[in-house]
Design a protein around this nucleic acid. Structure first.
Lengths: 345, 345
DNA sequence: TTGACAAGCTGAAACGTTTCAGCTACTCTT
DNA sequence: AAGAGTAGCTGAAACGTTTCAGCTTGTCAA
């Protein structure tokens, strides 16, 4: 009873060859004669043999998998990126192990450990899931698993990053509002403290907002900036705050779509009628952005591209074709104009 | 150079004990003396030793992880369930490996293989990700990993299922519409063909719809039923179809929220004003359901509960406490009334 | 007829753990 | 004083692969 799985040895016995030969057949070594190969293949088939990848991993120190850590599985932006990644990886024969940091930085580090322990060959870190301080020690762990970051940069070297030009995107988003006649443009950012990235996703969008307003000769009053948390509730709270100001904004640029949706809800709760009383621009272009009413104008992220590029890159790095290309690759975001930002009045 | 990771042997040498002792310390065996334990602990610390889980897995045939397959990562319903699962599993010292079948049944089977090869100790299958035919052969593979299905049932025995009483929920959703004065209630279902579940999530909701209408003395015209695909575009298409009927519905019960959102978009494109010209009820209560305008009335799924229950169950099964409890456990859905279903006229 | 060379195969040593049957050196009983 | 019992430890055999240095044959050039 309880017979354990068929192993190389069983197959070898049955096919009357050595286990080395069976292993060679399984791994398509070139020296096996056609006859033997065929014979072994059929016994493998008939015995239902499947290689034990754990044993193989132990020997080869490779797991044929890459670990992915996202900061919030619940945000469609991340899942779209992950989907692109999964496609790209599958094409390359790698499987993907996904972990969610759930917005807790400590968890991000822990998840990193788990994945590394599972012998992943590479790591893709999406968003603010793993703080710099947590990444560094793991990079030191022998074995050198390459790390690719998406929408995040790290100072530690050897970490490749795939990002969007957020400053420019923030600038374009804000300029769009200005061009449409809005003069009092507020901005809802990501969290402004904490161990997150200082170079991507937060400050740059804010700076783009500043630049656009300055260029238009409008005062960029920092009281019109409210920090959120990338999530719906954070956008809601930030917008509620801004709208309660003595001179409330007539338009809002939110650093992601989820917060923009929260902001729209807050505006309605404040008795405003959208888009007449408040224009809103989001960031990401998640699928629902097109479905809400008014449909959300947003900076579209090349989500699938980011995922696919990360897959290609991590594969290259895993193959040892080390630091090929620049450590930072930038993708463009695209302004998608919808009903939430009509020309003013 | 390239020094490989510290191993048990290294620690043993340094601490001047045998590797068996170090192993015992790592695994909290009770026979190690306090002195030795302390000494070994500090050398472990100072050498930065981390156990190689692959080697351990090879020996113990356990991976301390459970594999999760979802049919569509992009659907917030699934990610919310996964979040509950992850919490529950972490509390129990298990890590979670996530795979997305991306609505392709063939992929679901393949993902199953990958996870099994990674030595997961248990499997959680959420939604229509893995067809019955793909599950059976894997159950046969020696090693007997327990399987828990969420919102899906399998005929294969030994598979535990966690579901919502969909018939009742469909009945309640429809009755709500009837009570509000709608008399021509359409229904957008999941896909009605394909190797998916016949017992959960699709047909039952349809049957609940029928029962409610019959009970109200309303004709349940099956021409008012249109199949979707669980996704936005499917809901859009199905609704467009229904609204183009000679006698279009005045209300729509959609089998999930994503399709409901698509349906709302289709209605607006058809020139209808919501909720006046068309009431809509969804299913799941995804976070955005509360944010769209009009806010979506929906049958709220106990998403976190399902995830947590699955975590607890799979843990029990892994621990060998075999078929404890019934193989099918049902959870209630809760009607959440929002603006998309006002009293008619 | 010898040797060189290659094609096809095998034995055995890893990889880093866990586990279990011993082995010491004590401390108790009696 | 002898035996039994136990606390604390170790050696070595697995787990299922990969890999590499050989070992046989057989072929072919000289």
């Amino acid at each position: 009873m309880s017979m354990s799985r068929t192993t190389l040895k069983d197959v070898a016995q049955e096919a009357e060859v050595s286990i080395a030969t069976v292993s060679a057949v399984v791994n398509d070594a070139d020296w096996v004669s056609d006859g033997t190969r065929a014979r072994v293949r059929t016994t493998i088939e008939s015995m239902g043999y499947r290689p034990n990848r754990v044993a193989r991993s132990l020997k080869t120190r490779r797991g044929d998998a890459v670990g992915v850590i996202v900061s919030d599985l619940t945000n469609p932006f991340f899942t779209e990126v992950v989907r692109g990644l999964q496609h790209g990886l599958r094409e390359r024969g790698l499987s993907l192990l996904l972990a969610d940091a759930d917005h807790r930085f400590d968890l991000g580090g822990a998840q990193l450990d788990v994945l590394l322990d599972k012998q992943v060959d590479g790591l893709v870190v999406i968003g603010d899931s793993v703080p710099e301080a947590a990444l560094a020690p793991h990079l030191r762990r022998a074995g050198r698993v390459p790390v690719v970051a998406i929408e995040r940069t790290y100072d530690a070297d050897g970490v490749h990053a795939l990002v969007v030009d957020s400053e420019r995107a923030g600038y374009e988003a804000t300029r769009h509002l200005v061009a449409r006649g809005y003069s009092h443009v507020g901005h809802v950012t990501g969290p402004l403290d904490g161990p997150g990235s200082t170079t991507h996703g937060r400050v740059p969008r804010l700076e783009g907002w500043r630049r656009a307003l300055a260029e238009a000769g409008l005062a960029h009053d920092d009281r019109l900036v409210a920090p959120g948390n990338w999530r719906i509730d954070g956008g809601h709270a930030a917008a509620a705050h801004l709208l309660a100001l003595p001179e409330p904004p007539d338009a809002l640029f939110c650093a992601n779509d989820m917060m923009a949706l929260g902001a729209m809800a807050a505006a309605r709760e404040a008795g405003l009628s959208l888009p007449r009383d408040l224009a809103v621009v989001g960031f990401d272009d998640v699928p629902v952005a097109a479905l809400v009413d008014p449909a959300l104008t947003t900076m579209a992220m090349p989500k699938a591209d980011l995922g696919r590029a990360a897959a290609a890159l991590v594969r290259r790095l895993v193959e040892g074709g080390d630091d090929a290309g620049p450590a930072l690759r930038s993708f463009p975001a695209r302004l998608v104009i919808r009903a939430s930002t009509p020309p003013k009045r």
